[in-house]
Each structure stands twice: as C-alpha cells, then as structure tokens.
C-alpha cells in the first residue's frame, strides 16, 4: 500500500520492467464500454477504464439558449466535465466543476467541435456531460472516449470517432495509460485525443519533462493503444445490434417479405 501525502519519497513505479499493477510499459488497463445507460439522454455511454468509472451523456440538438450563444451557421457544443466528491480514495472533494474541471470541459468541447458535423444544425446546441463517478488517473482521456461513444449513439453525425489515452514518462521509460499513483509521481504526463481516420491530434496537453524524441514516441504509443481503444468503442456501439441479430437469426423481416412479393 502506498500512502501519498505523508511520504515525500517517490515510490519505485517500475520494478523489473513491470509497473505496480503488473502491466508492461505499453499495456492499457482493462476497458469496458456500455451504451445507452442514461434513459433520458439522446445518447449515453458508461466506461470502466481500470478503476475509473465515468458516465457520459449527450442531449440535443436543441435550440441554443440563451439566444446570444447561438450561431446561425452551425450548432454550438456545450460541455461539462465534473468529478463526484466521492470519486477518490482520499478526502471528500468539492461538488461541481472547479478550475481544473472547467479547463477539461473546454478542451473536451474543442475535441467534439472537430468531429461533430455542426453545420447540419445551425442555431442549435448540443450538450455533452461527462461525470466522473470514480477516478484513478486518465479521466479526461477516458471521458472523451466515452463521450465519443455517447455522441455516436445519439445519431448526431460525426466525421470520426475520437479516442483518448494518456501517455507518461517514468524515469526514461515512456508508458501507456498512467494510473493515479503513476500520474502523481511520473516525470511527465501527456493526455491525448486522436481522431484515427483523420490521423489528427485533437487534444494534447503535457506537463513534466520530455525530449523531442520522447514526445514522438508518446504519439506513436498513443496511436498504437488507439487501435485497441477504437475497437472497444465500435464493439460497444455494435453490441446492442448484434444482440438483436442473434435473437432474430433465421427469421424473415417484413423487408424480406416485401422483396419476395
């Protein structure tokens, strides 16, 4: 067990090539994604990413209010990322968005401004809500990954399905998907969101110390991890339809019957 605040000493994060939770440098934590978890929302998704538990929901498109926020050419996106006060193993947090959450809300909104086809809904707003119910490092990346699936289930057209992942530097090793303890003591942390079809980086933040080569390696690792994450996203989107297909396997649809007539 590692007690954080009380110890100034940095724990050994990599021992014999293995990270504290047994992962190799390039390994993601286990990720599972479920769609349509908030019945009232137009689209929603729930992601468990390691010990992170995050719910994302999309409402809209609807009339942009207050009116001065509307753009006659395109939809506007409004985004709220917030952490529950019981999300961490430590003290009780503050309720509602703080400065950190406000910044994450902004960069998350900017991700979706890149991929949502806003010009289809002039004068309207699309709301994205990301609620972190339990946090264990990398919540903004996991939040965007879930929000992208939520947006896709809403049926609002997108040009791509972005994914997020955080890359870090521990000593001289570049590692994928920092957890909370690693994030606290790592030498650098680079959360990224990538739009895989367009091969564009839509979110990039960094703090710590990294060389140019480190950053190039981080981007390569993020893209590689993205292959796994993108597949989990599309599998989650496909799952409810596969269930229905399985259920009605071999039965003729009314469409088939019409064709036969």
């Amino acid at each position: 067990m590692i007690t954080m605040a009380s110890s100034q000493e940095k724990p050994q994060l990599i021992v014999d090539g293995k990270r504290l939770d047994g992962r190799d440098a390039g390994d993601l934590r286990p990720i599972s994604i479920q769609t349509n978890v908030v019945k009232n929302a137009v689209g929603s998704a729930y992601i468990e990413w390691g010990n992170n538990k995050i719910i994302a929901a999309v409402y809209g498109p609807k009339e942009a209010l207050p009116k001065h926020t509307a753009n006659p050419e395109r939809a506007v996106i409004k985004c709220r990322y917030a952490m529950s006060p019981f999300s961490s193993l430590e003290d009780h947090g503050r309720t509602g968005p703080n400065r950190r959450a406000t910044e994450i809300s902004k960069v998350t909104r900017e991700v979706f401004e890149n991929v949502v086809m806003l010009e289809k809904f002039p004068g309207s707003e699309i709301d994205i809500y990301v609620e972190v119910l339990q946090a264990d490092g990398g919540t903004r990346a996991a939040g965007v990954t879930a929000a992208a699936v939520a947006m896709a289930t809403s049926g609002i057209p997108m040009t791509d399905l972005p994914f997020g992942v955080s890359i870090g530097k521990i000593g001289e090793t570049i590692v994928v998907d920092l957890n909370k303890i690693e994030d606290n003591y790592s030498d650098a942390d680079v959360p990224m969101v990538i739009s895989p079809r367009q091969d564009k980086i839509l979110l990039l933040q960094m703090d710590g110390n990294m060389t140019k080569d480190n950053i190039k390696e981080a981007i390569d690792l993020a893209k590689k991890a993205g292959e796994t994450i993108s597949k989990l996203q599309s599998d989650a989107l496909r799952a409810p339809y596969l269930e229905v297909m399985e259920k009605y396997k071999g039965e003729k649809s009314s469409y088939d019957e019409k064709q036969a007539d």
Binding site: V38, K39, N40, N51, K53, S84, P85, F86, S87, S88, L89, L133, Q134, A135, D136
Partner: peptide
C-alpha cells in the same frame, strides 16, 4: 458500486437511477 468511496449504493427504481457516495 464505487469502491474508492467508503460507502456507496446504486438504486434503480423503475427508470429512476441514483447513486449515493
């Protein structure tokens, strides 16, 4: 349901869904 919190519980009552932490 939220093991980081000392206690938690999720209640589903029809489509009403609440979480206490």
């Amino acid at each position: 349901t939220m093991p980081n919190a000392e206690g938690s519980a999720e209640v589903n009552l029809g489509f009403t869904r609440v979480l206490a932490g």
